[in-house]
Simulated scan of single mutants.
Amino acid sequence: MAFWQLTKLRVIYPVLLFLILFVDGTLMSSMGGLFTQFPWHILPTLTLGWLFLGVQFDVEKELPLWFYVVVVGVLFDMYYTGIFGTYTFAFIAAVAVMKQLRHILDERVLSGLFMYLIGLLIYLVISYVSGFVTGIANVSLTSFLLYEVLPTIVLNLTIAVVSYYPVWSFFQFLR
């Protein structure tokens, strides 16, 4: 592989990761009325989706994925929540489980979506548990699963399905 090809992925992936980090919050703030209509609370997790695509298409061979996971988690905590550690741990745990599942599952779309589903569930459960422990989240587990987890999974898996092949071809172009 030529040096310029390796450099393209090393530059474009983290730049898009940090851009998506801010698009994530912008999407939530601009469409918050739609995403948080009572009783629903839908979270677009584009940042976790981009990390999933990085795990699925094995970018760790060319760049330090764990460094970016930790940095994005810290930035997410500082910029969106102000509670340090919650989303850093959620991102790390979700990516770690997705990486382990990547060794078990094959590279087909449905296997990848299952891997993303498990990572997304871990991400959401960690954020719920930390909110419950700190007293921020005071909803029952049933309400959380029905009104937040289920619509969040539907939205994010739909985004993952729509973006899977375009991002795959984009990564092929970068390599």
Rank of each mutant, 00 (worst) to 15 (best):
D24A: 14
T134Q: 11
L157T: 01
G54N: 06
G32S: 09
T7K: 14
N156V: 04
F84S: 13
N156K: 09
F132G: 02
V139W: 05
L48I: 09
G82T: 02
E62T: 05
T142N: 12
G135E: 02
M31I: 14
Y68C: 08
I20D: 11
M78A: 15
L124I: 08
S30V: 13
V72L: 03
T152I: 00
F3G: 12
R175S: 01
Y87E: 01
V162W: 10
I126V: 15
N138V: 08
G33H: 14
V149T: 03
G49K: 04
V139K: 08
L16Q: 07
Y128W: 13
A93S: 12
T47H: 08
L120C: 07
F144W: 13
F132L: 15
T152R: 07
F132Y: 12
V71T: 06
Y68N: 06
L34I: 15
L51F: 15
A94S: 13
G32Y: 11
L101K: 00
V69R: 02
S130L: 10
S127I: 02
G135I: 06
I20W: 12
F91C: 03
T81G: 05
L53D: 03
F91E: 04
V125S: 09
K99F: 05
Y87C: 04
W66M: 01
H103L: 14
P166Q: 07
F144D: 02
L6K: 10
T158R: 00
L101M: 12
H41S: 15
L150Y: 11
I20Y: 12
Y128E: 00
F35C: 01
F91S: 02
G82S: 00
Y147L: 05
V15L: 14
S29C: 09
F173K: 12
I136F: 14
K8N: 13
